[in-house]
Amino acid sequence: MEPNNIEKQMKEKLNQRTIQPSANAWDRLDAMLSVTEQKPKRNFKWLSFAAVFVGFTLIGIFILNKEKPIENVIPSNPIVLENETEKVENLNEKENTISSEENQKEVAIINQSKKKMEEQPVAINPKKDFLLDNHSKTEEVIVENQSKEAINKYVNTKSLLAEIETGEKFEIPTLSKNPSVKVDANALLSSAEKEVEETFRDKVIQSINKKYNSVKSTLANRNYE
């Protein structure tokens, strides 16, 4: 099966042969090469644009998310402390005066909230979610107190009217509930302060938004130019 003489002769002559390709063969190859060279460049450009866009959006989201919790956390701490002291006062006063079922429930709720508040400083982990939860809890307690204030006042007027009309009824709890009104006023003040601070936060956010929009519009105008 070894190559014979004719095959050796064929090999020699075919290896020496040259066939000149047509004139446009190189042009075709050149066009094919330029097509393959252009592709990766385009892809790279689009990828870079996409990467820059994604990067900016991520940074924006990160900054916006970071701003909000900081503003929420800072005012929450003093409020928590104020509420603690206020509720301690509340408890002392109410323990001395009120013995009704509703007041007992209040005390139970406030005890629970107090326990939770007391647990906070021990933990001292300034985790955003934890503080936000506490903030919401204190808000709930304040709202409850406010509603009970209103009830107390309403009862007082009725009892006073009854006193005027009949001159018989005289309820001791009305007098005992008066101190609780003062304490709740403090809570209301603190909540008002918080609201003021919140409005300040809103103003800051609005000013940031305005600045962002102005920058965006200037960029858009520059692109049009």
């Binding site: 040259t18 066939i19 000149q20 390709p21």
Partner: peptide, 9 residues
């Protein structure tokens, strides 16, 4: 240009 004629063969 160096190898095309040989390779076409």
């Amino acid at each position: 240009t160096k190898y095309s004629s040989k390779m076409l063969s």
